[in-house]
């Protein structure tokens, strides 16, 4: 920062914009502050999911077989489809931000709509997957039942009581280990889904505001910041998908 001259520049006009909130000097400062704030929020979210993902790693390390077995009962084709849907929604979101930047109201609304629809498809598929788990008695703590045969035949040995990595520790039975996997599955995807639902609500709000000409090429910060959020939520899925669905599929022979 340079030390400014004490003279006040009074001839520059036009810079001041009605969209500048009282605490800021100008649009640029306002924009910079919002984006830094949003990034700080994203950092916070990263730490939030990191806590859960650490739990995942710990248990995957403790219960490797159960994780492979559990993972193999997840619906890979459907979730692959969902991954594509979600990544497309990131694209439409980016296009929406671009449209806002250019001040194309209709295009902005269209792309927001597309994002909303894609997000809803994702959530719909997720609901279907959850329902499927319910039907197969895979809801941990509620109706969980695990037939061990399916994995034991694969390995050729009946490991109902798998050996611990640390022989001093008594290992819980495989079914309980798989239950832990499903617990984490629901917690991780559930936390992700909640973020999607919140995102969907915000899209709706933004659409209403956009409809009433709340934004302009000078002022589209909220859309840009929301875009950041939406991309973040997508990236979380990019981590969850391989961690949950693709665990050592080859090792287990796949389904």
């Amino acid at each position: 920062m340079s030390l400014a001259t004490p003279t006040v520049d009074t001839h520059a006009t036009g810079h001041h914009h009605p969209e500048v909130r009282h605490q800021f000097d100008d649009l640029e400062q306002q924009h910079d502050s919002y984006s830094l704030g949003m990034w700080a929020f994203v950092v916070q979210e990263v730490m939030f999911f990191s806590g859960m993902i650490v739990c995942y790693f710990i248990f995957r390390y403790k219960y490797p077989e159960a994780f492979i077995a559990g993972s193999n009962h997840l619906n890979l084709p459907l979730s692959t489809f969902n991954t594509v849907v979600l990544l497309s929604s990131s694209l439409t979101m980016a296009l929406a931000v671009h449209a806002a930047q250019l001040g194309h109201k209709m295009r902005l609304l269209q792309f927001l709509m597309a994002t909303l629809i894609l997000g809803s498809i994702f959530l719909g598929v997720k609901v279907y997957e959850y329902k499927d788990k319910y039907d197969h008695n895979l809801i941990p703590g509620y109706n969980f039942k695990w037939e061990t045969e399916s994995t034991t035949t694969e390995h050729g040995e009946a490991t109902d009581e798998p050996e611990s990595l640390n022989p001093a520790l008594k290992m819980p039975p495989l079914a309980q280990q798989v239950e832990v996997f499903y617990g984490l599955y629901f917690i991780l995807t559930g936390a992700h889904a909640i973020h999607m639902v919140i995102g969907a609500v915000i899209i709706l709000i933004i659409m209403v505001l956009a409809w009433y000409d709340h934004f302009s090429p000078n002022y589209y910060v909220p859309i840009e910041m929301f875009g950041l959020y939406w991309h973040f939520v997508d990236i979380v899925w990019v981590f969850l998908f391989p961690l949950l669905y693709l665990v050592d599929r080859a090792a287990a022979g796949g389904h």
Binding site: A4, T5, D25, Q29
Partner: peptide, 23 residues
């Protein structure tokens, strides 16, 4: 030294660019 703004009302006088360079 003072920036050329007093409060909300006089915000229409923008500071010079040098004054608003933020890190």
């Amino acid at each position: 030294h003072f920036r050329g703004v007093t409060s909300r009302e006089s915000l229409s006088i923008p500071p010079t660019s040098a004054e608003t360079s933020h890190i």
